[in-house]
Amino acid sequence: MNFNKELIDRANENSLTGKRGDSIVSDAEIDLKRFDEIFQNTDDWTEEQKDLFDKRRHAYIELLNQYYGELLSRNANHVPWYVAGPSKYNVKKSDKQIDGIRRTMVEMEEKISRFIENTKKMIKKLEPPEKTIEKISKGKWVYGQAIASDDPFVLEKLYAKKEFQESYQEKMKLANKDARKKGENPPYPAYELSNNRQNLKATNDRIAKIEKMRKTKCAEIPFDGGIIVPDINDCRVKIIFDEKPEVEVRELLKKNAFHWSPKNKAWQRQLTANALAVAEQILTRKN
């Protein structure tokens, strides 16, 4: 990173401790170190993922230069009353400058957080499917992270998740049984087995639902002014109009969870039997 030495010195001079400028530079270095620590496990990355990380790291450094540079500039140009002296001190100007410093700090924190999260997603997106599936089968997925129904490998990932949940359930049961035989307290509490059992049931239910949907013959449904397309590959019910629908129709679609997709040039929502029935009811005027 590259910060203006003059701004650092002036920010130091304008602070009570005489170290404000140095502190800002130190915070920037800490943010860069934090970024590197978050993305330090690169051993199983592909070359494509590593190349992307290098580009994102360079962009992150530019981001730090931009915001911390602005923060230095604002602090360098703000002379507090205890440095300038109270005589004829422009309090209104000072308050405005302080507000600017605060806004820059808030904006900077938000921008940095978004940048890091987007980098995680971009690197994750480049992960080979087989590697993701292997991680899921070993329980190495982020807690609460959903497997999207429109993921091309949704079933493979769900079966991998099921495999882990089943093996984990068996592991807990055997460990508890062994502990009881030895007169020891079971290492896994009952609620943990119960929670995993419920999660396993939810995984099995999703698998059954998706497999049923894929086996179902979904025919296109024409209506006056367009067509309803059950897209199994994209896992979406797509409504394609010949012309822009009337406001009344658009409002009905929105109320029923359909949204406009500029990419697909269609109104759509997740593919389910209910979504198909609702679309048909709205557009063919069936009661």
Rank of each mutant, 00 (worst) to 15 (best):
R250M: 13
L271A: 02
K93I: 03
P245D: 02
K244W: 15
N41M: 11
Y82P: 10
R250G: 03
L72C: 07
D22T: 11
A266Y: 00
M122T: 05
K215E: 14
K93E: 13
A279L: 12
A257T: 13
I240K: 05
A146F: 14
A257P: 04
K138S: 10
R102P: 01
N75P: 10
K19C: 09
R236D: 13
T132G: 01
L7V: 13
P128N: 03
Y82Q: 07
K171H: 04
P222L: 03
F35R: 01
K93C: 09
A279K: 08
L155G: 08
M1C: 11
L253W: 04
P245F: 14
D54P: 02
S15I: 07
E251V: 10
T284Y: 11
I221N: 05
I101E: 07
R269L: 01
G144A: 09
S15Q: 05
K265N: 00
G144N: 08
Q97V: 12
G183T: 03
R56E: 05
V83N: 10
P86E: 09
E62I: 09
Y143E: 14
A76N: 05
A275K: 02
V247Q: 12
Q268F: 01
K138I: 08
K182M: 15
A275Y: 02
N77W: 11
G69H: 01
E163M: 02
L271C: 09
P152K: 03
I227S: 10
K88F: 01
P129D: 01
Q40E: 15
Q165E: 07
L252H: 08
E117V: 10
D234F: 13
A273S: 15
L283M: 02
E130P: 10
N256R: 09
S167I: 07
L71V: 08
K33Q: 14
I38Y: 05
S149G: 10
K244V: 15
I239V: 14
D36N: 14
K265Q: 11
N14T: 14
L276K: 05
E70D: 04
M213E: 15
N196D: 01
E163Y: 04
I221D: 01
N4C: 04
V106S: 05
Y82W: 12
L16D: 15
E192M: 14
Q66Y: 09
R236V: 00
D27E: 13
I123K: 04
S149C: 06
V229S: 06
E29L: 11
Y188R: 10
K111Q: 08
F164V: 03
T17V: 00
A59Y: 03
T272Q: 04
K138Q: 12
V79S: 00
K55W: 11
P189L: 09
E117M: 14
N233A: 10
K286L: 05
A59F: 09
I210G: 05
I147Y: 08
A208H: 02
F258A: 09
Y60K: 07
T119W: 08
Q268V: 01
F3Y: 06
N12Y: 03
Q165P: 11
P245A: 07
Q66V: 04
I8C: 02
N77V: 06
D242V: 07
E109S: 14
K111A: 00
K263I: 13
H78R: 07
K96I: 11
N185Q: 13
E220Y: 01
Y82D: 06
E170K: 15
I136F: 00
K244F: 14
A266W: 07
G139H: 07
F164G: 09
E117R: 14
K286W: 12
D36P: 06
K93L: 13
S149T: 11
L276P: 00
T42P: 07
